[in-house]
Design a protein around this nucleic acid. Sequence first.
DNA 1: GCATTGACTAGGG
DNA 2: GCCCTAGCCAATG
Length: 111
Amino acid sequence: MDGFYNLPVSDFTERVIRVVRRIPPGRVATYGDVAELAGYPGAARAVGTVMRRCSSRDVPCHRVVSAGGTLGGYGGNLELKRALLRAESLVVGRNRIRNFARVRWQGKKRG
DNA sequence: GCATTGACTAGGG
DNA sequence: GCCCTAGCCAATG
């Protein structure tokens, strides 16, 4: 473990950060998936709250997108998020991932 | 401690 | 295909 740079405000945040950090490059996960992997199914919205705060700068929050395949948001810098995702060899349209279902990372969960 | 917000999700029109 | 509504959880004021 590299250790956290910032002290997690809650166990939930810590778990979310841990999951998001496990997202490999070239893959993306949905807020709902991250929440579930974190142990809080249905807390997709809460995940967004944590991401917005970005407690740890080591968290690739740009690899977290909404369930529909849309980027969702990036603190108002969708353009940046789009660029980051495109840099991950992902095919991102105007504000939506094309092969979203193919690059969707569900914690190595078969599906 | 209550009310509001926020980068959400699923369902119905 | 898109817009609106209800439900959901955590953080903030």
